[in-house]
Structures are given as structure tokens and as C-alpha cells.
Design a protein around this nucleic acid. Structure first.
Length: 498
DNA sequence: TCTGGGGTCCTAGGACCC
DNA sequence: TCTGGGGTCCTAGGACCC
């Protein structure tokens, strides 16, 4: 816990739905559900209009359909559009502070102290947070953010949730417990259904109740780590640092089928598909993995995992698929499989070793091909294999991951729902007919300037458009502002929005 | 038409080593 | 032939988060 309220938590409000409403005028003011629209889908995000009818994240879409009125839009996610909006926001936050921690596509912590130039008094951080919120709404074309500011991650996070949507909460130093203790335990990060139920059975409902439980009891109930964590958080005792970059620890892909599968041939084919996705993402990330895990969800929702660890890491989809098939062969699937997943862990980097570790290669041997028992004892650390001859897979199959799921045939059009048909077209099939002169620039949009080359729209408004001419990652590239109708500025292909 | 998909972290037991 | 103790790796499952 810091002495000043210098940690901000920024949370975009119902982001997926907000982006859809931004990009399609007819959706504004209407209930919008984004998520799986096929048979077994669940809600990813419900707009605030839809929440009024009881729609919630993680609710089966079928349930949301029951609750929401006709005229509600049910949309499949457009992750590319959300990612672009996210990048606009994160780049903006990176200008506020050199230390930000992106938690997810729509959430980040900002270390206001790390910039060294902000006024950290209460009025100071309040004004700064308001500036941030205004800048986000302007830069994203109206996607709003809620912000919490406090002396710790915990308080900032709870604060951002307190006055959603489009809200700001600044928790003054010293007032942390007063803020926390009246709230239900379920507001604490780390308290999910199981923990909440266990606490309820002991008559504990508020964070204040939890703060009075002796540590040994909590450790008894929840184990060492979780128990001690709850004990501290309930007392607002939180000094978790803001962590800028994190390395991925696992890569996985899974798929729930419209109908349960029993056919082994079909199951193996699905496994191959998943392994291809995982392998592709490993290669795209310059990673390899030693442990392959499959996940099987049976017809009755019971779920098992099976894992195998190789002597050498691989990024080869065929190797991943082979391991996965061997694991699946040991599982009884005769009663029906609802979901199949393939994941990899024990990740190691390839690319950097190629660049920097050429001399020490001899110590580790030459390749990851099978049949090398490697070391009799144990290579004290499995990571950092070296792949002398490894091609770096520059433009690899460009992840079959996103851009909508190829399966679920009847997905896009929203067949036969009550009420008027929902206007929806997947982004990949839309065609934007652009005039030579463009004035409705959208944040995140890829553009090309006749003199400056490729870039993307940072913000627009009042007849002007601001463009960045490098990637959205830090350090930011040069920014230039043009008249909105500058003919030298054109949308890059393909258009990202419709 | 009950319950997605991609992650992280933790626990617990067994194998194995010193 | 009364057999401790610690550390690491691996596997399986579970809780939780967005």
C-alpha cells in the first residue's frame, strides 16, 4: 500500500458491446449481446441496456434470449475490432505513464507515480483520471472507461467497479478499509462462487466480516496461499507491484461442439485442428513447448486432462497433434464428448536463442527431433533450447485463431429469432466502398499516407485526424495531424470496420 | 437448446534424487 | 530391513479471472 493514491485501474465499460454500438449507429440505445450465438454459446458482454433485462456475462446465450426483448441484437464477437480499440487505449495510457500493466483486452493498471511528473495529491489524481477518461472516450469514438484510483491495486480495482459505467472513484489514503469493509466479499478479486459459499456457511458476508477471521482459520479453509491472500486483501494490505510485461506460460485452443461427438475419427480430426492452431501460435510467438495437454469434457460436463512431457520442446503442429492423439487414445469417449482442447506448457523461446546463443549450442545438442534421450540426469533447466537451423517463421499461417470460428455453420446470420432479424455481418465479409475523400476516420483504423506511409488513426474529430506512423506498441511512433478530408490520407486495405 | 474460450495460480501425491 | 528429510519434476484437478 502506497502513501499516495498513485495507482489507477482503467476498465472499459462493456467493451465488446460498446464497440459494436460505436460501429453501428442502429445499435445505440438498444440491448446488445456479444458472445456465442450458436447453440451452446454464452454471453461475453451484455450492453447496459441488455443488463436491465438480466443478461449477464457467462450466462448461456439461450437464457439471455429468453430474458431480453425482441429487437435485442445478438452478435458474434469481432475480436480484431476490439483489439484495435484496446491498442488505442493502451497506447494512450502508455503516454500517461511508462509503467502500465495490461490485465486483459479491456483493463489495465497505470502507475501514476512512475511517470514522475504527475501531481499525486487527491485533486491532482482526480483531475488526471478525468483527463484519462475523456481522452479514452475521444480516442475510441465513444467507448467509455471507468477508473479507480487508490493506494494499491486492490483499491484501484474495486474503485473502478464502484461507479460503472463511465465512473470515477478516488479512494483517499487512509480510507481504504472504510471503502472496503461494507462491500460484499464477492467484490474481492479471488472470491468466486466456491469461496463465497464457504464464507457464507460461516456467516461471513462483507469484507469487514472477512477481515475479522483469524488467519489460521482462513488457511484451514482455503489453503496456504489463498487463505493468506484473503486475509491480507480484506485488511486492504496489498503491495502487489505493477508488472509491465509478462511472458506467456501456456498456449491452448479448445472447442465445444454443437452436438456431442463419439466418432474417434472425427475426434482425432478435431484434435489435429486444435493442434494446428496451437502450433501456429507457438511459431507466431517464437515459442516452443515440452508439455502437451489434452482436455476432454464429457457429455455430462465432467472434465479431465491428460498430459505428457517430451524430452525436447517442439513447435511443430504435427508433433503436438501426435502427442495429443496418443493421450486421447487412453480416454473413454464412448458416451460422448462435448469439448476437446489442446494446450501446451513448459514454454521456451526459440528466436532469441537463435540470435544470442550460438556458442553454447554444443552443450544442448542439435535438434528437437525425437530419439535423442538428451541428458541421462536432467538438464537442470529445460528451457532455452537452441535451434541452430531454425527458420524464424515470419509470416506463418497467420494464426487461424481469431476472426471467428470456422465451425458452427449457421452462425453469422442469426436465423429465425423472434422479432426483427438482427443486422449483422461478420467483418471479414464486409466490403467498404470508400470514396477518394474520407472524413469519418475511426480510431485504430489502418491508413496510408501518401508521404508518410502506413499508419493508424489515433484520434479524430473537429475536422482533423491524428495518425501514428508506427506500431501501437511502445515506444510510440511519430504522430501527425491532418485535415480529415486530406486526400493524401487513405484507408489501408483491407478495411477493418464496416 | 445449461454451462465459451483463453488464460493464471495453487494443491496434492508420487517418482526420483541426494 | 524401523525406513529421515528436502528439493524438483510431473500429473491431475480445481478455483478464479476477463
Amino acid at each position: 500500500m502506497r502513501r499516495e493514491a498513485s495507482i489507477a485501474h482503467v476498465d472499459l465499460d462493456a467493451m465488446f458491446a460498446a464497440v459494436e454500438q460505436r460501429d453501428k449507429v442502429s445499435l445505440r440505445g438498444r440491448p446488445v449481446i456479444v458472445g456465442g450465438v450458436a447453440g451452446r454459446g454464452v454471453v461475453a458482454t451484455a450492453s447496459y441496456e441488455a443488463r436491465r433485462f438480466g443478461a449477464r456475462s457467462a450466462m448461456p446465450t439461450a437464457e439471455a434470449r429468453r430474458r431480453c426483448p425482441s429487437g435485442t441484437a445478438f452478435l458474434a464477437p469481432r475480436f480484431a475490432a476490439y483489439r484495435k480499440t484496446s491498442e488505442v487505449v493502451m497506447a494512450l495510457l502508455a503516454e500517461v505513464s511508462p509503467l502500465i500493466e495490461q490485465v486483459s483486452i479491456d483493463e489495465a493498471y497505470v502507475d501514476l507515480a512512475a511517470a514522475g511528473r504527475h501531481d499525486l495529491s487527491l485533486p491532482g489524481v482526480t483531475a488526471l483520471a478525468d483527463e484519462i477518461r475523456a481522452a479514452i472516450a475521444a480516442a475510441t469514438g465513444g467507448v467509455t472507461a471507468s477508473v479507480g484510483v487508490g493506494t494499491s491495486k486492490l483499491v484501484a480495482k474495486i474503485g473502478s467497479d464502484l461507479h460503472k459505467p463511465d465512473g470515477l472513484t478516488v479512494a483517499p489514503p487512509g480510507g481504504e478499509q472504510a471503502l472496503l469493509h461494507p462491500l460484499p466479499v464477492t467484490r474481492l478479486p479471488g472470491v468466486g462462487p466456491a469461496t463465497a459459499e464457504r464464507l457464507r456457511r460461516s456467516g461471513l458476508h462483507t469484507i469487514g466480516d472477512l477481515a475479522r477471521v483469524p488467519l489460521p482459520d482462513l488457511i484451514d479453509w482455503f489453503g496456504r496461499a489463498h487463505g493468506a491472500g484473503l486475509h491480507r486483501l480484506a485488511r486492504a494490505d496489498d503491495d502487489r507491484p505493477i508488472v509491465g510485461e509478462r511472458e506467456a506460460k501456456s498456449v491452448s485452443a479448445e472447442e465445444t461442439f454443437d452436438v456431442d461427438l463419439t466418432d474417434r475419427v472425427r475426434l482425432n480430426a478435431e484434435l489435429d485442428l486444435l493442434a494446428t492452431r496451437v502450433g501456429g501460435r507457438l511459431r507466431a510467438g517464437g515459442l516452443s513447448a515440452r508439455t502437451i495437454t489434452i482436455k476432454v469434457r464429457h457429455y455430462d460436463f465432467t472434465t479431465i486432462t491428460r498430459a505428457a512431457t517430451r524430452a525436447q520442446p517442439t513447435d511443430d503442429p504435427r508433433q503436438v497433434a501426435q502427442a495429443a492423439r496418443r493421450l486421447l487414445a487412453e480416454v473413454d469417449t464412448s458416451a460422448g464428448v462435448r469439448l476437446l482442447g489442446v494446450g501446451v506448457t513448459t514454454l521456451a523461446g526459440f528466436v532469441q536463442d537463435d540470435l544470442f546463443a550460438t556458442i553454447t549450442d554444443s552443450e544442448l545438442g542439435q535438434s528437437a527431433e525425437p530419439g535423442k534421450p538428451s541428458h541421462p540426469g536432467k538438464p537442470s533447466h529445460p528451457g532455452k533450447p537452441s535451434h541452430p537451423g531454425k527458420p524464424s517463421h515470419p509470416g506463418e499461417p497467420s494464426q487461424p485463431t481469431e476472426r471467428g470460428r470456422p465451425s458452427h455453420p449457421g452462425q453469422p446470420a442469426e436465423p429465425g429469432q423472434p422479432g426483427e432479424p438482427v443486422e449483422f455481418q461478420p467483418a471479414s465479409t464486409s466490403v467498404a466502398l470508400r470514396p477518394a475523400v474520407v472524413s469519418d476516420w475511426r480510431p485504430g483504423q489502418d491508413v496510408r499516407h501518401h508521404d508518410h506511409g502506413p499508419g493508424w488513426v489515433w484520434g479524430s474529430g473537429r475536422g482533423r485526424v491524428t495518425v501514428r506512423f508506427e506500431g501501437p506498441t511502445t515506444p510510440p511512433g511519430p504522430v501527425r495531424t491532418f485535415p480529415s478530408d486530406d486526400p493524401a490520407l487513405q484507408p489501408a486495405d483491407p478495411p477493418e470496420w464496416r
